[in-house]
Write a protein that binds this DNA or RNA. Structure first.
Lengths: 236, 236
DNA sequence: CTTGTTATTATACAAATGATTAAATTACGC
DNA sequence: GCGTAATTTAATCATTTGTATAATAACAAG
């Protein structure tokens, strides 16, 4: 099917002279050395498309243009590769969320719910539209949230919990009529809503018979913020 | 484990002329013949736990207590098995949603948003708590929604679109201040919210430090309805 | 120049996987 | 009773899959 699998005997027989070689020989290349990142980038894509179980190590290696053994060399195993790739983006995301919240808190309270929600959502939004890697990460998240396995749960906790808890605390202070447990619950709703939605934008156009296509991403974000803020504020 | 599956392999322990061989012999069994359903039930579980790509045909066969070839015989392929299992529940779900909406419409308009939302959510809720199969179906849905593949998209459309569009129409009539496109969008939000949530109940307890455990499923449902209704009603 | 370390490749492998086959057994219409 | 079709099994197949191994080349240190 693909031109990757090679028969060494046949290849050398067909080659009268070896100076026109297209095949790369093993050995350290001149300098480059950042194939690790190249692998991670392509892995992100493949994991997003097919999920962990559906992703093929061969596929990742092929897309990254490297030998399959190299991903074992750098990451150890498929699972470790997945976790690594996921954490890489997750840390960036959490960082932005913390920064945004800090900026809000510097302004002094009370804060509008809309602003808090926006501070939480915006980094994810920006990441999604920052390039193919960001969009892939959104899909990876949606998939990870659908996995009941212990591995997945640990990873989710690790990436999300810290910033999420901070936001819950701030929201609780700014919505004194709503008990903290209810806010926590509603924040869980919120995570579901936006992840699902970001992941499923195509479906959204589908539902609205394509009318949504015209709406820019910023407008879409404010629609989402309005929806979620109203939900968060709903009287108990 | 499960009270459903009739395990033919092990059931032959009462063989009269049995020479100690516990293996089941091939051949048509007396009457039963409903191994198809047994397979489907167990497939539901496995697909829910591991997703389509992660599910193993051998595993399904083993849990159902049948030979692996039998699932090819009945369903043709792994993919067809998945679709079949999914459609089976999906049809039931859609049916209940239609019935509920019809009942509402018989009461005459205008309707409260809460009632409409509840009519849409309740069947899913009941199904989830109707037994292991229902819970498994919820997880299958969450996973299917995370799959960008064409196969998955088609299946989602087939199962959800009809009833969803009816609900959108009704909501549009009962919320005259909000354009239909916005309602469609918000209904997409809604689907994300409840699917995510139902699938991820354990996580919810996690977030609230276990305080949610005390809340019964009915109370949880009304929390969700309150949240979503407020969001749907949010002024544009 | 030698030696060792690191990055990369081709190749190999054992296990796992979805599917198929041929045979065996039984229910059922005639 | 008999033949035919339906149901079920054991066994196996051809691939695919994740990982491991050994070879090779660049580079650094001495």
């Amino acid at each position: 099917m693909d031109g990757i699998s090679t028969n060494p005997g046949k290849a050398s027989a067909a080659n009268p002279d070896d100076d026109g070689e297209r095949r790369r020989k093993p050995g350290r290349p001149k300098d480059n050395g950042d194939l690790r990142d190249v692998i991670a980038d392509h892995a992100e894509q493949v994991f997003a498309e097919h999920g962990f179980a559906g992703a093929r190590v061969r596929d990742i290696a092929a897309r990254a243009g490297v030998n399959q053994a190299l991903i074992s060399y750098y990451f150890g195993s498929k699972r470790k590769l997945f976790d690594d790739v996921f954490r890489r983006r997750g840390r960036v995301l959490a960082g932005h969320r913390h920064v945004n919240l800090d900026a809000l808190l510097d302004r002094g309270e009370p804060l509008a719910v809309e602003d808090i929600i926006l501070a939480y959502l915006k980094p994810q939004w920006d990441m999604k539209y920052s390039g193919p890697g960001g969009a892939a990460f959104v899909r990876m998240q949606a998939r990870l949230h659908a996995e009941p396995e212990e591995d997945a749960l640990r990873l989710r906790r690790e990436v999300y919990d810290a910033s999420l808890h901070r936001y819950i605390t701030v929201l609780t202070k700014n919505l004194p009529d709503i008990p903290e447990d209810v806010i926590s619950m509603r924040m869980a709703f919120l995570v579901g809503t936006y992840l699902f939605m970001l992941n499923d934008l195509g479906r959204l156009q589908d539902l609205t018979s394509g009318h949504i296509t015209d709406i820019g991403k910023d407008q879409m974000l404010s629609h989402l913020v309005a929806f979620l803020s109203a939900g968060l504020r709903a009287p108990v």
